[in-house]
């Protein structure tokens, strides 16, 4: 197999890699806000279980969680494993990343001075208005570098989908490597991830710059 055919074959999996990437961000970014707010709830009956779940999600491998989401229903309830693996992959990734994002959000929310809440309260803003108009924009600016780190990791983590044989770029690369007994597909995969992350870095840099018009 020529290098070019390898690249073409692996590129066909890039769409699925992107699907994992974008769908995970789409679900995990907002879900993380909800988890962070529940985690910070004053009622310990709400915050304690959330704290535990987040610690499990962060303290066990994503690969394991992916296997659990994909095959768990089969072993537990005898539900057949769905043929479209994208669903379990996105569920597992979204939950896992939401847990990481929630901790970043929590740090960001806690870094905002109480004076901001007090100023908003005295001006008559409701709790929701205060959070959405005053707190959240400042939180986003503060946490953007940490979010970028997570997104860079997510790009690389999409390769974990090979454990459930979801035909994304890395899974295809691994299959080619096995059938051709060649290391080249891994190098190709490495280049793909590197370029992907270069784009991520560029985009995130632009977003960070767009928020640099003020200092906290």
């Amino acid at each position: 197999m020529t290098l070019l055919t390898m690249i073409v074959k692996m590129s066909e999996g890039l769409g699925k890699t992107c699907a994992i990437f974008f769908l995970t961000l789409l679900f995990a970014l907002p879900l993380g806000v909800i988890i962070a707010l529940l985690r910070m709830n004053k009622n310990i009956i709400i915050s304690a279980p959330i704290k535990f779940i987040v610690s499990v999600l962060r303290g066990t491998p994503l690969m394991l969680q992916l296997l659990a989401v994909t095959y768990g229903p089969y072993y537990l309830f005898d539900i057949s494993v769905s043929r479209n693996k994208l669903i379990p992959v996105v569920i597992a990734f979204s939950i896992n990343y939401a847990a990481y994002f929630s901790e970043i959000y929590r740090g960001g929310i806690e870094s905002i001075s109480t004076g901001q809440y007090e100023a908003a309260t005295v001006l008559g803003y409701s709790k929701a208005q205060t959070f959405i108009r005053i707190i959240l924009p400042q939180v986003i600016k503060t946490i953007l570098p940490s979010i970028t780190n997570e997104i860079v990791t997510l790009v690389k983590d999409t390769s974990i989908a090979f454990t459930v044989s979801y035909q994304e770029m890395f899974t295809i690369g691994k299959q080619i490597a096995n059938s051709q007994t060649s290391f080249t597909p891994f190098i190709v995969a490495g280049v793909f991830y590197y370029v992907f992350n270069a784009i991520v870095g560029f985009v995130m840099g632009r977003i960070e710059k767009s928020m640099s018009y003020y200092k906290q």
Partner: peptide, 9 residues
Amino acid sequence: FQSFNLFPH
């Protein structure tokens, strides 16, 4: 407030 607490954004 003593510390202004303007909204920086």
